[in-house]
Every structure is written in C-alpha cells, then in structure tokens.
Design a binder for these strands. Structure first.
Length: 434
RNA sequence: GUGGCUGUAGCUUAGUGGUAAAGCGCCAGUUUGUGGUACUGGAGAUCGGGAGUUCAAUCCUCCUCAGCCACCCCA
C-alpha cells in the first residue's frame, strides 16, 4: 500500500525493524554468551522452534482477549490459506514442541532454552520494537517451588554476570486455577462500584482481564485498586505455601526480591508465580519476565504437566549494559594489518594472509590501497596491535617488517618466521570475541 | 489502536520565499617506503515523500511516511 521507498528512492527498514550494527552486535554476543553459559550451568538444553506457527497456537496460549493477540500479531494466511502468525513470544512454541515430540517420556523436568526473534506489531517506543531478540528458559514437569526459584535464579545470574547495577526482582502469585477465579472475582467486585472513576482502559480490562488492572499507571484507577483487599488472602493454602517456598529459595540464593502485589502479566496462561526483573529504568523497561503456567500443556492437547519459564529481552539488556558508567565497546577488531607495497609484495602478502588466518589470527588488509602512509593510517584507525609491512625490498629477500603499533618499534624478520613472530607478540589473553 | 514532538550530506547540526553551509567521517594528497598531530584538495544532499499556495518553496498549507516520547501492552 505504502511506497517502500522512503529515503530518496532508497530502501529503508520497515517500521519498528532495525539493523543491529557491529557495535551493538558485539554487545548482543556478549549477552548471548552470558545466557548460554547460565543455561548450560543449570542443565537446560537448547531448542530451536519455527518463527512461524499456526495462529491458533497463540490465540489458545497467550489468550484470545490479550492485547498481543487482539492487535499485535503478524497474522496472515499462507499460500494454502492456513492462518499463520509470526511468534510474538517464545513459550508457546516450546510448549508445542514438548507435546508434539512426546517429551513427557523424557526424565522430568525437561529443561529447554531458546534464543530468537519475536514479532509484535506495536507502535515502536523506547526499548520496544516490532522485532526483538529474546532468550528464554522453560522447565516442564516440575510443580516444585524450587523450580520456579531456579528459573528466576538463572535469569538473575545472567544479568548479574553482566554486572548490571540496581537489579530488582519483583515476585507475585496469581494463584492456581481455583484461587485465580477468586482473585478475579474479588477485583471485579471491588472495582465495579467505582467504575466511573477509573480510566477507559481500566474499564475494558475489568471485563476482559481484571488482573491487568493491578498494575495500572492511571492515578485515579490506582486509588481504586488500592482498596482491593490483599490478594494473598485469596490464595488457597497450597498456593500460599508455594509462594512462600519460592521466596524462601530466593532468599537462600541471596537474591534480593520484592513481593509486588501489583505485578500481573499480559499472557493468560500464567498461574501461581509471576516475576519480572527490572533494571534501573524500573517497570518501564523490565529486562526479564516469566512465571508458572501449569495449565498450558493441557490446553495445547498434552497431558497435565506443570511448567515454569521466563523470557528476557536482549536489546534491553544491551541498553542497560551500554548505560553502565565507563562501559567500553565490545567490538573486537582485527589484530594484524597487512601492508603491501607493489605487485610482488602483494602476492607475498596474500600468501601470508592465507597462512595467518589459517592459524586463527585475525588479519586485515586493504589490497586496493597503495602507499605506506595511507595503509599505516588505516591500521592505526582500526586499532590493530601489529602491522606487517612488505615492500619491493622485502619481497626480494623474503623478509617482512613487523611493527608494533603502540610502541612504534619494528623489526625485519624472515618471511618464514612471521607466524611465530606474530604469535609471540600478540597479547595472549585478548582474542577475537565470539 | 490513542496522544505529543520531530524529519537538511554516512553522523551531529546551521540556514534562507529565489534550488543550500559547517564539523566529524570517507577518498586523495602535503618531493625520499612509516600511523596517531597539522595542512591542502575531493566526493557526497532532488533539504523524508506527494499535492497545493506562489512568478518562485528546503523554508507557508494539507496529506502521507518515518523517527522519537508517552499511553495500551510488553522484552
């Protein structure tokens, strides 16, 4: 409908989509590495599921009435006219895979980790895009509170490993199936008499998903919400004990948490424990969120299986990382710059390139450039540790100049010995990231 | 989906009702084969797109698209 060419006839990314440039990509790597390391430490196995799923998978799991399903899904009919959607979140697909592949026959709990792009057709805003990368953990087949705590712990450890300041873990319980009914009833009964005072959004929520009213930002609505009696009192004894146990485990692991009775989540499938981890920007940029979903597997056609999981937004974590005082770039450029002067030298240089790269050394060269000054200048800008200079003279007697870029000291060595000379002089601990 | 602000070279910005500047970056050079400083030159903008008003619009009006911010919601 709209013209795809916006920038003077050139193409640009779709709304809410963005290129992740090398600088940020390096930070993503860093975060992903921290995640996989924690996932491995906690015994989670990687799973990769499709980006595209039948639309019904999400309407069933995330919820027909949820904001996400109502207006934020990329939904369309494929060429066979089947309604399909880009995944708006990760849990549904993993849960589907658990059922589809009969993972109930594996030793329980089955612990799965994933990392991938999620899609939501929203209005872009700070920390929110239409495509975003998320990593997550899901544990199926354990109803134990310790499993809830382990998922929270794992997320916490990822963020802590990245040394993010001022993290805050928010925990609440929405109750199991029975208590949740009572809680919804209580909210509706308390708020309804004050309907005129609450916002339009809240009135809609009251009908569609009363739990959502809990975290309203509207001042007037908030006042009404404050009148709701403590929800903890509505929990069944089992639910209350479960919550208490989760909190006790968190304490044991030294995780500073806050019991937040206003915490609710936008997916309908949550039962009992829900949690979020906030960074310095508070609720406005929750870095991670998740909870227990004991009914989901059955709703998706599997046998009754308790489960708990979490998802974390990588870009938000990257933002928090970059905001840290004195944070340096994670970009790792090449270590060695190959300077060649003249055609003979260029041939030798190319041979050398093959040899050094095969040995795992990160080498770069600008073969189109001539002139030593230009090439040195570029080597400097790239911040390489060493420059290797080969000109006519060196090409003739099979030698090469090894120049240390920070000290300016250089030495001519036989071509045959370059590899070891380079290996000797490169800082050992600093390798290319990845 | 709702509301507010914004839109000039790759980036950050200046500017005028008569078709545009600067800094950074990029490219090339500053007599001999050596960088980080300095200097010189060059490339690069249909002033987001479209329509309108006008003799004339980058500058005025409208529409549209995009970006930013907030709400809804979420990572």
């Amino acid at each position: 409908m709209s013209n795809p060419k916006q920038l003077n006839g050139r193409y640009q990314t779709l709304r809410g989509m963005r290129d992740i440039l090398p600088e940020d990509a390096a930070a993503y790597r860093k975060v992903e590495a921290a995640f996989w390391s924690a996932a491995r430490a906690h015994g989670f196995f990687e799973i990769r599921t499709p980006v595209l799923e039948p639309t019904e998978l999400f309407t069933r799991s995330v919820g027909e009435a949820s904001e996400i399903v109502r207006k934020e899904m990329y939904t369309f009919n494929d060429r066979s006219d089947n309604p399909v959607s880009l995944r708006p979140e990760g849990t549904a697909g993993v849960a589907r895979a658990y059922v589809e592949h009969g993972m109930k026959t594996l030793p329980q709990p089955v612990k799965l980790a994933y990392c991938g792009n999620m899609y939501r057709y929203e209005r872009p805003q700070a920390g929110r895009f239409r495509e975003h990368e998320q990593f997550g953990l899901e544990a199926f087949g354990s109803a134990d509170a310790a499993t809830d705590a382990q998922v929270i712990l794992a997320c916490w450890q990822v963020l802590a490993a990245l040394d993010l300041p001022d993290l805050s873990v928010q925990v609440n319980s929405l109750g199991g199936t029975d208590s949740q009914k009572k809680i919804r009833r209580l909210i509706v009964d308390t708020v309804t008499p004050h309907q005129e005072r609450i916002s339009d959004d809240a009135q809609r929520q009251l009908k569609e998903n009363p739990l959502r009213i809990l975290d309203t930002k509207d001042a007037a609505t908030r006042e009404v919400v404050e009148q709701i009696p403590p929800l903890v009192d509505q929990l069944t004894t089992d639910d209350r004990e479960h919550l208490t146990a989760v909190l006790e485990y968190l304490e044991q692991a030294d995780i500073p948490y806050e019991l937040n009775p206003h915490l609710a989540r936008g997916f309908d499938y949550y039962t009992r424990t829900v949690f979020e981890i906030w960074g310095t920007a508070g609720a406005a940029a929750s870095l991670a969120g998740g909870g227990r979903y004991d009914d989901l597997i059955r709703q998706l056609g599997g046998t009754d299986t308790p489960a708990v999981g979490a998802g974390c937004g990588i870009y938000r974590i990257v933002e928090a990382l970059k905001a840290k005082a004195g944070q340096r770039s994670f970009l790792a450029g090449p270590q060695v710059y190959l300077i060649q002067l003249g055609n003979d030298a260029k041939r030798h240089a190319f041979e050398l390139l093959a040899e050094l790269t095969a040995a795992g050394i990160s080498v770069t060269a600008a073969f189109g450039k001539e002139g030593i000054r230009t090439q040195l200048r570029q080597a400097d800008k790239l911040g390489v540790a060493l420059a290797l200079i080969i000109g006519q003279k060196e090409a003739m007697d099979s030698s090469i100049i090894v120049r240390d870029m920070s000290s300016g000291m250089q030495e001519t060595v036989p071509l045959k010995r370059v590899l070891e000379e380079v290996q000797d002089r490169l800082p050992k601990d600093v390798g290319p990231s990845s």
